[in-house]
């Protein structure tokens, strides 16, 4: 009776998934053929009218669609028909560029705010006002000034992922234990060395938490941003397939977005574990 918790949890997860798939199948399956219909009308209306089948695809439609995409992730049949891999590649590239720029900006400014009470007070009103602005509200301004839709999307990613990293870095740096700083002071450690050997490792877990929040937000925002700017990317793919009324593809994309988001989060969780120290 001593099966491991992980094993039992996996059994429950699979059971829940099976129940979900069965309910989905029942919910979207047809109700049998409708009698007495003009064959010409039936031919034009398709299965939705003739068998009462829902327009919503069933789990097996989606499953086969996912399989189809997995088999050919990188095909390119022109602007409106690219493989999911290509679309995801565009989205990931935008997210990573915007995120890295945000990282390069947030960490030094976070250090400054965390180390200087003056700068903390001075910059606080700007941060408090800028932080709650929806990143998409910047989009028109970005499009107008940058005049490039792809770079505007990157800017939106930058502006949404900078705040959690900035605030967490400042908090982590400001709450480095006084005694550790005193150790550095009694050892006459220079300011630069102190920043890298005491403050950075001490604040690293907090900074990584901010980075993890940021990547999550960036991945949320990129879908919406690409719906607006269009052209390429997973967000554009979703909107394009909605316009094509291909619900199967929309569901496929939703699933893939979830998986990639999880992978990004797990990568940062791995990094966070590396820098976390037990006390």
């Amino acid at each position: 009776m001593s099966l491991s918790l992980g094993f039992r949890a996996a059994v429950v997860s699979i059971a829940l998934f099976a129940v979900f798939v069965v309910l989905w199948q029942i919910g979207t399956g047809g109700s049998g053929s409708v009698a007495q219909m003009d064959p010409e009308y039936a031919k034009r209306m398709g299965a939705t009218a003739t068998t009462g089948k829902s327009a919503m695809p069933g789990p097996f439609d989606v499953g086969s669609k996912i399989w189809e995409h997995l088999k050919r992730p990188f095909y390119d049949n022109g602007p409106n028909d690219k493989g999911l891999g290509i679309q995801l590649g565009y989205s990931l590239a935008r997210v990573l560029i915007g995120y890295l720029i945000a990282l390069l900006v947030a960490i030094p400014i976070g250090f400054l705010i965390g180390m200087s009470p003056l700068m903390n007070r001075a910059l606080d009103p700007f941060i408090q006002i800028l932080k709650p602005i929806s990143p998409l509200a910047w989009m028109p301004l970005a499009l107008y000034t940058i005049k490039d839709s792809s770079i505007s999307a990157i800017f939106v990613i930058f502006i949404c992922s900078v705040w959690p990293m900035l605030i967490n870095t400042a908090f982590g740096v400001a709450s480095v234990r006084r005694e550790w700083l005193n150790v550095a002071r009694t050892l006459e450690v220079s300011a630069i060395r102190r920043a890298f050997t005491i403050i950075l490792p001490a604040a690293a877990p907090t900074i990584l938490t901010g980075m993890r929040i940021s990547i999550g937000i960036a991945w949320l925002v990129i879908v919406a941003a690409e719906m607006l700017v269009g052209g390429t990317g997973i967000g554009y793919f979703v909107w394009n397939e909605w316009n094509n009324l291909s619900i199967t593809n929309v569901i496929t994309a939703i699933f893939v977005i979830g998986v990639i988001g999880m992978v990004l989060d797990q990568i940062l969780a791995r990094f966070a574990r590396l820098v976390t120290f037990p006390e």
Partner: peptide, 19 residues
């Protein structure tokens, strides 16, 4: 004038760097 390597401090809370 400030801290010096000539004067080592042993802190009550040991103040080791946990990482």
């Amino acid at each position: 004038e400030g801290p010096s390597l000539d004067r080592a401090v042993i802190f009550q809370s040991h103040a080791l760097l946990p990482w």
